[in-house]
């Protein structure tokens, strides 16, 4: 049992200090994940992360320790992001990202990657981020995103292909 699991058990018994420690330990990773999901909108990502932690506190008794606390938290955070995206129709701003990219001639590779990730479907963005940057297995990522394993693998393959196509096209653009 990890430290986070022990802290979660303690928090489930009403120990607020234990939950405070969980927030301190996991806030960076969750906020970073949500920032990528929110395409760099730090304020939105922090709001979503805050809501995710509050929801995690309310539901802490439901954490059974079947997966890691981090993956359970990421599941709540991703769910929060999806609810927000559905409510505010976030994908409609994809076009502005596409248009703005052409005006920046020489972007750093990392920024190019972020721009490419920002243009793909959120589910593919989440799948790539969870499986590559966050290092989750396909099974864990599928559980976090609450989708079948086959769908997750499809998102990873197609998402990577779309990003690769975009990066290649941008490199070839003078």
């Amino acid at each position: 049992m990890s430290d986070s699991d022990r802290l979660a058990q303690s928090a489930a018994q009403g120990n607020v200090a234990a939950f405070a420690e969980l927030v301190r330990l996991h806030q960076g990773k969750l906020r970073a994940f949500l920032r990528r999901m929110a395409r760099g909108d730090a304020a939105l990502a922090d709001d979503l992360a805050q809501e995710a932690f509050l929801e995690a506190y309310r539901k802490i008794a439901q954490f059974r320790g079947e997966g890691s606390f981090a993956s359970w938290l990421a599941q709540i955070g991703y769910s929060r992001y999806l609810m927000y995206a559905r409510k505010h129709k976030l994908e409609s701003i994809d076009e502005s990202i596409e248009q703005s990219h052409g005006t920046e001639a020489a972007l750093h590779t990392k920024l190019d990657l972020e721009a490419a990730l920002a243009r793909i479907h959120p589910a593919k963005r989440a799948a790539l981020t969870l499986c590559f940057a966050e290092g989750y297995s396909h099974e864990e990522a599928a559980r976090i995103m609450n989708i079948p394993l086959g769908t997750l693998k499809s998102h990873v393959l197609r998402g990577r292909e779309e990003v690769r196509t975009m990066l290649t096209a941008w490199k070839e653009t003078p």
């Binding site: 970073a32 992360a49 805050q50 790539l128």
Partner: peptide
């Protein structure tokens, strides 16, 4: 490139704000 860990933002007052909301 995809496997590069995400840059974690500074803690700042995030935890304090969460606990205040809590």
């Amino acid at each position: 490139m995809l496997s590069r860990p995400l840059d974690e933002p500074d803690e700042g007052a995030f935890s304090t704000r969460v606990l205040a909301r809590l």
